[in-house]
Design a protein around this nucleic acid. Structure first.
Lengths: 226, 226
DNA sequence: TTTATTGTGAATAATTTGGTAAAATTGTGG
DNA sequence: CCACAATTTTACCAAATTATTCACAATAAA
C-alpha cells in the first residue's frame, strides 16, 4: 500500500484529497500544518507528499526544506495562482511537481502516478479486474484477453464507474452526475447511447461481463460466473 | 441502526425524505435549519447527513463548515440546479456528494448507500432474506436456491415491501401508498394483479414463502417453517 | 482537412403496467 | 348444506412507459 502524506490547513481540501486518493487506492496520512506533518513523518514511512504552500505555524516551503534534510520522496506542491514569485521559483524547481489551485482530482492523481513511476515506486497499479477484463485507470486502457482496447473517454469513464462496483445498479442520474457533472443539462438517453457503444465494443471480445439493463432503474455491469 | 441527519427548512421535503429513509430502514434525525441541526447533532451520533443548501438562520454551507470542525461523516448537499457558483465550488468539493432538486427518493437512497459503502460504514445488510429467498436491493435481483430471478420493477418493489416485514399483513392501500405513491389514482385491484404475478413466478421455485391473502384486509408474505 | 468522439432527436422495439370482466373462491345466514 | 353476496383470482388487452438503435450534427483531435 502506497502511503501519501497530505499537508493542508484547509480541512475541506484535505478531505477532498483524502477521499480521492483513498478511492484511488492510496493510504493517506493527513496533516494540518507543517509541524504536524513532520511529526507524522516520524512515525509513518510515506512514499510521496502533497504539500500546501500556505499553512500556519510552519509553511509549506519550510516544511519541504525540513523534509529534504532527511527524506527523499517526491513532493507535490499545492499553490494558488500567482502565489509563487520569482524568488521562490528556484525552490519550486527543487520540488518535483506543483499544482495550481483549484485543481481537479483527476489531475492530482495523474501527477502522483507520474511521479511514482518516475521514482520507480511500485504503486499498486490501479487496475480494476472484472472477469477477464482489466481496466487500467492510469493508462486509460482496457485489456480483454490480453488484447488492448482503446476506449473513448466517456465510454471509459462509464465503464470505470460501473466496474467499480460490479453487479450493482446505477441510475442514469447517478452516472451522469459522476461522469458528466452536476451541471450537465443533457438528456438521460446519453447514457443509453454510451452503454450501447460499450456493448458493441465488448460484443465479440468476452463473455465475462455484460452490460445489463435494469428496466426502470438503470444499468449494471454484470459479471458472468464461469 | 444507521442514523441520518436531514436538514431542510421545507417541511414537505423534510417529510418526504424522512418517510423514505425510514422505510429504507434508517433512523432519521430531522432539523429545520442549521442551528437546529447543530443542536441535534450534539445529542445524536449520526453516520451521515443530508443538508439543504438554502436554509434560514444558518444556511447549509455554514452548517457544513461547522460540522466539519468536529464531525467526520459523509454529507450530501441538496441544491437547486445552477445554485452552486464558482466561489462555492471549492466548498462543494469538500463535501461528499450532492443532489440536484428535484430528485427522486430512489436516487437519494442510492447516493446514501454509495457513500456509506465508501466510508465503510456497515449499512444494514442490503439483502433481505426470507427462507431461501434473497432479495438483493443493490442489484435489484432476487435469488431463490442460487437461481437468480429478475423481476419487473413494480413486482420487485412489492416483494420488497412485503418481505421487509414477513408475516405481517399489509392493506392494499398501504402497499399502494408506499410503492405507487399517494398520488396514485388507480384501482386497488392493481395490487392483486401484481400479487398474482409474483405467485406465478415463485410458483415452482420455492416452498419457503407464500403470498397469502387475508380476506377483507390485504396480503402477507408468509414464511413456511421447514 | 480528415477522422474520431460526443450528444441529440426521432423512429422503432420491447416490456411493463393497469384496467376489465368473467370465473373462482370464500364466508355468511338461512 | 345451499344460495347468495362479497371478495379475490385470473387471463387478456390496450396503453403507457422505457429502452434501443440509428443517423446526423457539432465539436474536438489528429
Amino acid at each position: 500500500m502506497t502511503k501519501i502524506l497530505v499537508a493542508d490547513d484547509d480541512p475541506n481540501i484535505l478531505k477532498f484529497i483524502t477521499i480521492n486518493l483513498t478511492e484511488a487506492g492510496f493510504e493517506v496520512i493527513g496533516a494540518t500544518d507543517g509541524r504536524d506533518a513532520l511529526r507524522k513523518l516520524e512515525n509513518e514511512v510515506c512514499q510521496l507528499a502533497v504539500v500546501d504552500i500556505m499553512m500556519p505555524y510552519m509553511d509549506g516551503l519550510s516544511l519541504i526544506k525540513e523534509m529534504r534534510k532527511t527524506l527523499d520522496i517526491p513532493i507535490i506542491i499545492l499553490t494558488a495562482k500567482g502565489q509563487i514569485d520569482d524568488k521562490e521559483k528556484g525552490f519550486e524547481a527543487g520540488t518535483d511537481d506543483y499544482l495550481v489551485k483549484p485543481f481537479e482530482a483527476k489531475e492530482l492523481l495523474f501527477r502522483i502516478e507520474a511521479l511514482l513511476r518516475r521514482y520507480n515506486i511500485d504503486t499498486d497499479k490501479q487496475v480494476i479486474q472484472v472477469g477477464d477484463v482489466h481496466i487500467d485507470i492510469d493508462r486509460y486502457v482496457v485489456t480483454v484477453n490480453k488484447k488492448t482496447l482503446k476506449l473513448p473517454l466517456k465510454e471509459f469513464e462509464l465503464l470505470q464507474a460501473l466496474a467499480t462496483h460490479p453487479d450493482q445498479v446505477f441510475t442514469r442520474e447517478h452516472l451522469i452526475d459522476s461522469i458528466w457533472g452536476i451541471d450537465f443539462e443533457g438528456d438521460n438517453r446519453t447514457v443509453d447511447v454510451h452503454i450501447k457503444r460499450l456493448r458493441t465494443r465488448f460484443n465479440n471480445l468476452t463473455d465475462a461481463i455484460k452490460f445489463t439493463t435494469v428496466r426502470g432503474v438503470g444499468y449494471t455491469l454484470e459479471t458472468v460466473d464461469t
